[in-house]
Computed example of a mutant assay.
Amino acid sequence: MATPLTVSAEEHDDGTPLLVAAGEIDLSNIETFSRALTTVIASAGDAGGRVTVDLSAVEYLDSAAIGALSVHADQAPGLRLLANPYLMPVLRISGIDQLATVEPAEPDPG
């Protein structure tokens, strides 16, 4: 059974927009994810176009998610992805790491 997607928009202490996603991102919920990305990127004007997308709690993403990240990377030149370490190979192979800064998320100490 698929893990439902949850997204929430937050801000870093410095005011930089942050989108936190958890669960699975696929064709069934890509509209929700894309809409959240669009909203967060639109709010990044005051942050110089810098946006962080926290994918550390994303367990799976498909080609629809890769496509959405690619499109939005073009719109936010300062896009930074914090990814679940399991997703790092997919993000590298897809070339997302050439469009955005991609970093492995720190492991949860708990």
Rank of each mutant, 00 (worst) to 15 (best):
G48F: 06
L27E: 12
G48K: 03
E59K: 05
A57K: 11
G45K: 02
T52G: 00
L61M: 15
N29G: 03
G23M: 03
P77F: 04
D26Y: 09
T39V: 12
S28D: 15
Q75M: 12
I25N: 12
S70V: 03
G45L: 00
E31T: 14
G67T: 05
G23L: 01
L82G: 11
P77R: 10
S43D: 15
V40D: 03
F33T: 01
T32F: 06
S28H: 13
V58C: 08
G49Q: 07
D46V: 01
S43L: 06
I66Y: 08
T32E: 15
D54N: 07
L81H: 14
G67R: 09
S70I: 03
S28A: 12
I66R: 04
H72V: 02
Y60S: 11
T39I: 07
L81E: 14
G78E: 09
S63I: 04
R80N: 15
L82A: 14
G49C: 08
Y60R: 10
A42R: 06
A57G: 08
S34D: 15
H72C: 04
R35V: 00
D74W: 04
S43G: 12
A76G: 07
A42Y: 03
G49V: 06
H72T: 05
V71P: 02
G78N: 09
G45W: 02
V58G: 10
R50M: 06
D46E: 14
L79N: 03
D26C: 09
A44T: 08
T38Q: 02
G45R: 01
A65P: 12
A64V: 01
I25E: 11
T52L: 00
N84S: 08
V40S: 06
L81I: 15
N84W: 08
V71T: 11
L55S: 12
Y60T: 09
R50W: 10
I66F: 08
I30K: 11
V71I: 12
N29Q: 06
L81D: 14
G48S: 03
A36N: 03
A73G: 06
G48M: 02
R80A: 14
R50A: 14
A42N: 10
D26F: 09
R50D: 13
T32L: 13
I41A: 07
L55M: 14
L82C: 13
S28Q: 08
A73Y: 11
L82H: 12
T52V: 10
G45I: 00
I41S: 07
E31F: 11
E59C: 04
T32S: 13
T52H: 01
G45F: 01
Y60K: 06
V51L: 02
I66L: 15
A65N: 11
R50C: 05
A73V: 04
V71Q: 09
A57N: 12
S63N: 06
A42S: 12
G67S: 11
L79M: 09
G78C: 06
V71Y: 10
Q75V: 08
H72P: 04
Q75G: 08
L37C: 04
A76L: 05
A42C: 02
D74R: 09
E59F: 05
E24W: 09
I25G: 13
A83G: 11
E24N: 10
